[in-house]
Write a protein that binds this DNA or RNA. Structure first.
Length: 175
DNA sequence: AACTTTTGACCATAG
DNA sequence: CCTATGGTCAAAAGT
């Protein structure tokens, strides 16, 4: 496990950038999610550091998808690695929408830095749950006037795009 | 051409 | 022992 003596920090930040500990966790607000999806796309809360996405996973609500030995498996759907599942309702890319819970894995751009970040968001939560693992070793982020980074193309992770896939398909969930 | 991002597949661990 | 989930790496595509 993490050799660092630093426990994982869980932050709940809004797309706006305001960081505050509210304490809401099991709150399912479809209205809020719909708003964020139809109005404001979910974006990664800038922490001032640069992160590189190295993985993504969809969890929960995956029971709707089944696997067929021989079919294509995507990590976005499930993880039938060694297990041969049966795909009855495999929507390839569309399956992504099946996942009610999405988890993205980010790693610090600096290899020297062992800082990792995990972003998890739910369909009923407009805010993202960011879990920080480890700590940075390069001092200050872009907030400093020394090594500021003009990251224009970087940090453009469209969480909403991943969840919706851009297919524009409606959310088949009445819950 | 380079870098970044995205998706797929594999591995490891836990229950 | 088998199954499921979590996590990571690699390759490909896009900009």
């Amino acid at each position: 496990m993490a050799s660092t003596s630093q426990p994982p920090t869980t932050y709940e930040g809004n797309e706006g950038g305001e960081r505050g500990h509210h304490g809401d966790e099991e709150e399912q607000q479809q209205g809020a999610w719909a708003e964020a999806a139809g109005g404001q796309p979910l974006v990664m809360p800038e922490d001032g550091y640069q992160w590189k996405k190295y993985g993504q996973k969809f969890i929960k609500n995956i029971q709707k998808i089944r696997y067929v030995d021989g079919s294509k498996r995507c990590m976005s759907i499930c993880r039938p690695a060694n297990t041969l599942w049966k795909i009855l309702v495999l929507i390839t890319k569309g399956a992504r929408r099946c996942g009610a819970l999405c988890r993205s894995y980010f790693r610090c751009r600096d290899k020297r830095c062992g800082a990792k970040k995990k972003v998890e968001w739910q369909p009923g939560d407009p805010n993202l749950r960011v879990v920080y693992d480890g700590a940075h070793q390069h001092g200050s982020p872009s907030s400093n006037g020394g090594g500021q980074d003009a990251d224009g193309a970087a940090n453009r992770y469209d969480l909403s795009t991943q969840y919706f896939g851009g297919a524009g398909a409606p959310t088949p969930q009445t819950q």
